[in-house]
Design a protein around this nucleic acid. Structure first.
Lengths: 242, 242
DNA sequence: TCAAAAGTGTTTCTATTACACCCATGC
DNA sequence: GCATGGGTGTAATAGAAACACTTTTGA
């Protein structure tokens, strides 16, 4: 197939982060305005090259995440999305990016990283509707990240990663509504979510708001896989004749 | 953070393939006996280095898949699983592998590739039960691949990729039973699978076996996402008090 | 006529939905 | 009291599971 002197090509490796959070009831993604070429001044995902200290890819993702949000591993969810390696995806050369999905509870305005002129929370809808355009293939990565989050809300406890340590069931429902882009019945959600064993456990406390009855507080339970799952309503009616 | 002369480390990129098929009603994965160091003589996933002709990672996966199975892109399912990049995963140096999941209909005994002394179909159970040990981190990759296949049988039409162009509902059911490792009621499956619009469409033909009533033949329909999905039975009873 | 596999009907049970209604609080 | 959001009860419906039964074939 090839002679003995053949040697495989080397590539540069970056990590890119799709960091999702809820702000004012809307799903938002952290984007930076690039301070360097290529795509200087355009919006992009936070990320960067792998260190040359022999770090694992996941470690690089944690490092970049900490640079952007000052949150560490215990405080949020981080998982690998996929590798993106089209030859023409980066004009600087053969650069393969491993994308990660991070979920954070509501955060203050982010601080700028070293190679990011600005960093800001952009509503996911801005990206999905193509009103905000992104550098490289980052639009596809965001789309993949949001779809991963939407899917994992169904059968894992990922939604609790959007909340703080303590949360009400109404807050948890707002996570589902914002990420899925639907409205859910408050009362049925209230019972359904409590019927999933190990999903949320009651805390001995209440949260008082300006008006209305105080809500019980809960924290994330031990179970990470939900059974039964919370099925998201079909976005478009499934009516087509067989 | 780092000075201007800093340059990121280069890595070598491989693709590894988890190729699944059904043989005699059992889920099997294609493994090769390594013909070179490291791990000479041990079992491993088929795969290899990225070409230096500027190919996309997905193209490299297709190329390796064709070398092992002589099947092309139209004949089977191929999707990216994940990137594996622990620093110590390969003793040869910093090698990142992008793993792919391939699903093939029943195939004859495979031909050996260039750097594979033997290639053979190994029952998935041999790997999951750790009776067969694999080189590198390939055991984890196989576990991830099988779990991906199990999950995607629920909500996508992936099961048809295990079948030939034409198949009976009983054959399709055997796919679900083998991949999930459960037994399904033939009669309920028969109706449920036909109730999913666009999953399978009847072909104007029958399949006669040695004994019994001939079965109608079907082919894969246009729908790739199943609604409603086919939920797999919980492997262990979900009984734990809240 | 029998065995085997395909395909149908029907009952039972459980989960989801929709929505009426009650509860606890601040003002 | 009354507005507001939290929480409960319940009837109607849809889906899943269990299984008796009929159909079609080869031998």
């Amino acid at each position: 197939m090839h002679d003995e002197s053949w040697s495989p090509p080397t590539v540069l490796l970056t990590v890119d982060l799709v960091i999702l959070t809820l702000r004012a009831g809307r799903l938002c993604v952290l984007l930076v305005e690039r301070g360097e070429e290529p795509f200087r001044g355009e919006l992009a995902l936070p990320g960067g090259f792998l260190n040359n200290t022999g770090e694992a890819i996941t470690e690089a993702a944690h490092r970049e995440l900490n640079e952007e949000t000052s949150l560490n591993a215990e405080q949020l969810h981080l998982e690998q999305l996929a590798a993106y390696g089209e030859p023409e995806r980066d004009p600087r050369g053969r650069i393969v990016s491993v994308a990660y999905l991070a979920i954070a509870p509501g955060l203050p305005e982010p601080k700028a990283g070293t190679d990011a002129a600005h960093a800001s929370w952009v509503p996911a809808e801005e990206v999905l509707s193509k009103r905000a355009r992104l550098a490289f293939d980052h639009e596809q990565i965001v789309v993949d990240g949001i779809e991963r989050a939407r899917a994992k809300l169904e059968y894992t406890s990922l939604a609790t990663a959007f909340c703080g340590d303590l949360f009400t069931i109404a807050e948890l429902r707002k996570v589902y509504e914002a990420v899925w882009g639907v409205e859910l019945d408050t009362r049925n959600f209230y019972r359904k979510v409590q019927a999933v064993s190990g999903f949320i456990v009651p805390a001995e406390a209440e949260r008082r708001t300006a008006v209305g009855r105080p809500a019980r507080l809960f924290r994330a339970g031990p179970q990470t896989v939900l059974s039964p799952p919370l099925i998201r309503p079909a976005p478009f009616p499934t009516n087509e004749g067989t």
